[in-house]
Design a protein around this nucleic acid. Sequence first.
DNA 1: AATAATATGTTGCATTTGCAACATTTATAA
DNA 2: TTATAAATGTTGCAAATGCAACATATTATT
Lengths: 211, 211
Amino acid sequence: MVNIFANISASSKCKLLKILEANTYNLKKNDNIFPILKGEKTIGIVLSGLLQIVRIDYNGNKTLIEELEENDIFGNMVYPIPNREFNYIVKEDATIIIIDFNEILFCTSEKEYFTQFLKNLVAIIMQKLQAKNERLEILTKKTIRNKLLEYFNTMSKKHGSRFVYLPFNFSDLADYLVIDRSAMTREIKYLKEEGFIEVKGKRITLLYDFK
Amino acid sequence: MVNIFANISASSKCKLLKILEANTYNLKKNDNIFPILKGEKTIGIVLSGLLQIVRIDYNGNKTLIEELEENDIFGNMVYPIPNREFNYIVKEDATIIIIDFNEILFCTSEKEYFTQFLKNLVAIIMQKLQAKNERLEILTKKTIRNKLLEYFNTMSKKHGSRFVYLPFNFSDLADYLVIDRSAMTREIKYLKEEGFIEVKGKRITLLYDFK
DNA sequence: AATAATATGTTGCATTTGCAACATTTATAA
DNA sequence: TTATAAATGTTGCAAATGCAACATATTATT
């Protein structure tokens, strides 16, 4: 993933953060960062560490919305209307910066490092957009089988191989596809029986023509 | 929606398009723009007119993925891996520009209009990202009822009113929510009977506490 | 105004899926 | 190693949903 400060020198980075009135925060594991995200138009950038965005519904059930790693961006511009349902959890000590989005849009600096920052930002958001599109593409499939196959196809195309290595366990995969875990296991069994796939731990082999 | 050329003068716009080696295309209704989108990293910007992105599955069923209006962006960076399933349809005579994405990322111009272009681009992509997130938020709801309520809530919060005006007909709403139309009608009937909503044409009134 | 086309409403029924409950396996910690 | 927790596999059953077929209403076209 692109670094938000790629091709920006350390000294320029300092100036940039000052211009944009960016606030840097060092977060300890289990901190709650919600209070930091005041305005509706703030974006956060993860410089290091690991955060999670989770939703806790009225039943108290947690759902992992997304994991935020180094260089990820987040905030109310990136996630919908702020409400109590969303929580940001610090999983590993992290450093983040918070910027008022309007500071970016209305910044009149013509310094090279500001332009570079914008280009980096564009690249990062584009990547995020693509990831969202992939997930949407999957979720617009109606059956469990089609969701699974769409997921496998995407992964397989991405790496240009008929071997798909799951980046998470089957429980989390079910969450990602928004389907019941046991129903998913059942469908995977059928796919195996019908000779579509082969499963060995987290490695799935596509036996059909996946191109 | 933000105009990609907002705060850029006509003459600067010309120079900008030259610098980025942008190609302008005037499209007639029913043109197929697929051949224009050669590279994997090109983005298109709709200057005027109306396009549709549709998927045609192996059964020949069309699904509307998105409508692209003035100032919308599209392209393989914005939509997943290019494959035969996607089609771009020109619904109304349109003017679009196509830019190689790398021309943007590696452009070294420090002109004010280039910086402004980047800022506009950031704003547009952010908006798109938010729209995607909203849809994802809806599609991660498991039942028809919850999808509907999530949709109504989002719309209602967006306009700060308990009245929701559907931007499309019920058929298309069902498509958007990825549910069967008749099943949706049934659920809406239940919601009416249980006193959650009131429906009058395309105006839906939320009778519960939607805050 | 008459006709055609499209959108909406309704219902029975088959299928899919979620849910719950439990067995078994694998990973983690004491 | 043993104990404990977490992940995975299995199954019956109820509930939700899609599908098909049709009726009615609304909108567009001639």
